[in-house]
């Protein structure tokens, strides 16, 4: 791939990603009053994050068992109201420990 072709690809990649984010953000100025739409927008972050996490989390590490252990630790700490950093680091540490035993 020469540099010119790379730059065309880069323009499409970054341009489309930017516009799909910014156009709705910049152009929607009014408050939405519709109760259905408001409800949809309330649920969408949780639905997106869940769909991204399950089942993908089980394929994110070298072993499904270590990933499951990490998930359990994450859910447990999240239930206790721990911060994002604590939850993420503890989940990674759990994966590391389990894989030291397993793999």
């Amino acid at each position: 791939m020469d540099t010119k072709e790379f730059l065309i690809y880069l323009l499409i990649l970054s341009g489309s990603t930017y516009l799909i984010r910014s156009i709705p953000f910049a152009l929607l100025r009014k408050k939405i009053e519709n109760r259905f739409v408001k409800s949809f927008l309330y649920y969408i972050p949780y639905a997106v994050l869940t769909a991204m996490t399950i089942p993908a989390i089980f394929y994110a590490t070298d072993s499904k068992i270590s990933a499951a252990a990490g998930l359990v630790v994450a859910v447990g700490l999240a239930l206790k109201g721990k911060s994002l950093t604590v939850v993420a680091v503890a989940a990674c540490a759990m994966v590391f420990l389990v894989e030291c035993v397993l793999v």
């Binding site: 972050p45 949780y46 994050l49 869940t50 991204m52 996490t53 993908a56 989390i57 994110a60 590490t61 070298d62 072993s63 270590s66 990933a67 990490g70 998930l71 994450a74 859910v75 700490l77 999240a78 239930l79 721990k82 911060s83 994002l84 939850v87 993420a88 680091v89 503890a90 989940a91 990674c92 540490a93 994966v95 590391f96 894989e99």
Partner: peptide
């Protein structure tokens, strides 16, 4: 492999 779980751990911490 362990770091692969970081992003998902964050997602869990937001949703749960």
């Amino acid at each position: 492999s362990a770091l692969g779980l970081a992003i998902y751990g964050m997602f869990v911490a937001i949703v749960v």
